[in-house]
Design a protein around this nucleic acid. Structure first.
Lengths: 151, 151
DNA sequence: TAAGATTGAGAAGTCAATCTTT
DNA sequence: AAAGATTGACTTCTCAATCTTA
């Protein structure tokens, strides 16, 4: 039935926005970096070479390149990250954590983990979590090779 | 492990944005109403009494009241929906589909269903879809009673 | 010409303040 | 005073155009 095949997608949209709002409400005015900044810091911490090019970072945090460009502007001004030239390709620009950025990440992490735990994770069993990861990864992977679908 | 408890949430964010972008890319320039409008039309179609108050509509489509207020402005101008006074409470305003809105919905529906099918549903088994709905509904329900957590 | 990053213009969305009715 | 809707000022985000290097 059409409705059933559509239901999973609706659940996804509904759940994400509900939880996201709860987390934001949770953290507002706490002195902790905002979700978008937190995500940038987190991704950079996990970068294999310690930094990403702007474009890579944009993919990781799921924002447009232009948005990331401005975000990095602000975060550089706040001392959280630093831009660096790539000697091998002078078109590219690397972004890396500063000590201050790493400290902000460390300070924010427990608050975010706790909030995600409380508003999302705790409502699911281990099996349900595993199921979500398995299902949603399948969806995401199906798209990873599709940047250019048509020849 | 902390990372594992966090993984399901990350999957969710990643999958939603990936699929949403694919759907939008799919439908751009097709003459079909944009996703936000489609969602409004869809919700109004499903309204038990054929209409919603602004506030109810805002909850359904997961947008702020102010955003919905402006959205409805535009959609009224486009002839898709109509505002109507509530005789029993003159503070409230009802929004309902017009014939034109219903026609736009009917025209758009197969395109949206097909796109959601192709970018999302088709990648999941029936069991996986059921699992998603079950898990994510639990999360959403856990929040429905939490509008005012603290006394 | 292509790829990488940034900038300009504007769309989409939010919060706080306001107006009206209860 | 409180609930429902709208408005004003603002943040967030995107697309298209541009600049620079490959």
């Amino acid at each position: 039935m059409e409705t059933d095949r559509y239901a999973a997608w609706r659940s996804l949209l509904q759940a994400q926005s509900t939880v996201l709002r709860a987390i934001e409400a949770d953290l507002v005015g706490s002195g902790i970096v905002a979700p978008t900044w937190y995500d940038v810091l987190l991704q950079l911490e996990g970068a294999p070479l310690g930094c990403y090019r702007m474009q890579e970072l944009a993919e990781k945090v799921v924002l447009s390149r232009s948005r990331v460009s401005r975000l990095v502007d602000e975060m550089v001004a706040a001392g959280m990250v630093a831009r660096a030239a790539d000697p091998s390709d002078r078109r590219a620009i690397h972004v890396a954590l500063t000590d201050e950025g790493r400290a902000a990440l460390v300070a924010a992490r427990p608050r975010y983990l706790e909030s995600i735990e409380r508003h999302f994770t705790t409502h699911l069993s281990e099996a349900e979590r595993d199921g979500l990861v398995a299902s949603l990864s399948k969806v995401a992977e199906a798209h990873s090779g599709c940047r250019t679908v048509v020849a």
